[in-house]
Write a protein that binds this DNA or RNA. Structure first.
Lengths: 220, 220
DNA sequence: TCATTTTTGTTGTAAAAACAACAGAATTTT
DNA sequence: AAAATTCTGTTGTTTTTACAACAAAAATGA
């Protein structure tokens, strides 16, 4: 675990907490490290999520899956980021999401709830952590709001442009790479992959965009 | 404002705070009451949101609007509930949402940020309020996740069934009323109203549901 | 009460998407 | 290096949707 301390200390949850406090804090959070193979479930839907996870290496996706196995990707989570935090804050019997390893990964599971609910206000880092959590949740909210913005566009083209514009804005450049492959992007935008590939081709033919695999360029 | 104290004290933000502390707390939050006419904007998109709102009477909707005026409803907020809280927690230049009065309403605007960021830990209710905020944000997260579940279904019928099932579950009954009219529901599910009405008719004809206006019954 | 406005349901048409099936390219594994 | 697997693009068909236009019902308000 110590091997990943440089990842952990940069996690948004531990901002404004002194590095020397981290080890005891992690003990307090019952932090335990696990390894997962590609495509394995870290949290599966319909089982109570009582801990939050921090990605130490690799990456995971938060997904919604329906009865027939159709998958929607809510977001991709990279090393250094937190997931499952909302379920650490409130008790939910059947969480509406699952977490799946996109690549082989190492995950630190923590029992955040134990700290937040029985907080001894003498510990200064508890209050720091709760405030960090506020900011993480607020950001996650806004991320979900952005996703809703994309998926509620009426046509596949509009969804793509909405998503690609956001990525260009994040990259602060009209040239950028995306973290999703085609199937994952289709799952994120809730469209059919082949129809989406087809639409991308048309958009390129019309001179709206240029792309090769994960590299894109917006042409106004 | 005192007239609405019974609403305010039940607001999730003020749970575990003694009623006698409320007046000074509200002063601390710079709470100010405003009235809005039906359809007017309480927060408009692209203007910095620095305060959160509590609905005292009437109801509002959180919406996303695109350049062409297409509107998606994120959620409806009733008396006693909070909105705009995510933007009180983190600074955002251009919020992706607007808040519109669905009916004539009275709103209490509060400066939550001032409290959360420069918290004097001597005030016991500050920590209570921050914890309440955590729970509100977590719930809002889950609500957004549910909405994404609905809007990412592929057909209008699936979207309707996904939404109606959730409502039945919330009501704990197969007979229930919904808070949206047809246009609002279409805006929430991101479909065309007339196509949706048409689909509802078909579903009724096929014996899947029975409905009259806002009253629904699921027939398995 | 009557007129006006809002809400809901209905129908037809054109556009778009899902779905399926497949081929070639790229990547990974052996 | 070759084989196997994964990823991406392409095409055609069927289903579904958006859009438009309108009529009836209900709610509002003067």
């Amino acid at each position: 675990m110590d091997h990943y301390l440089h990842i952990i200390k940069h996690c948004a949850l531990f901002q404004n907490i002194r590095e020397e406090d981290l080890p005891s804090l992690l003990k307090c959070l019952e932090a335990t490290m696990y390894s997962y193979k590609k495509s394995s479930y870290i949290f599966s839907a319909d089982e109570n999520i009582s801990r939050a996870g921090i990605v130490l290496s690799g990456s995971v996706v938060i997904v919604q899956e329906d009865f027939w196995g159709n998958r929607t990707i809510l977001t991709r989570v990279e090393a250094g980021s937190l997931f499952g935090e909302a379920f650490s804050c409130i008790e939910i019997q059947k969480p509406p999401i699952a977490v799946v390893a996109l690549t082989a990964c190492r995950i630190l599971l923590i029992n955040y709830r134990r700290i937040a609910t029985s907080c001894n206000s003498a510990c200064s880092f508890h209050i720091s952590m709760i405030k960090n959590m506020l900011s993480i949740l607020a950001r996650y909210n806004i991320m979900l709001t952005q996703k809703i913005k994309h998926v509620t566009r009426t046509t596949t083209r509009q969804k793509l442009l909405s998503y690609l514009s956001e990525q260009a804005q994040i990259a602060a450049s009209s040239v950028f790479s995306i973290s999703f492959n085609r199937q994952e992007l289709a799952d994120y935008l809730a469209v059919d992959r082949s129809a989406m590939s087809n639409e991308l081709s048309k958009m390129q033919a019309e001179g709206l965009i240029k792309y090769n695999r994960r590299n894109f360029k917006l042409l106004l």
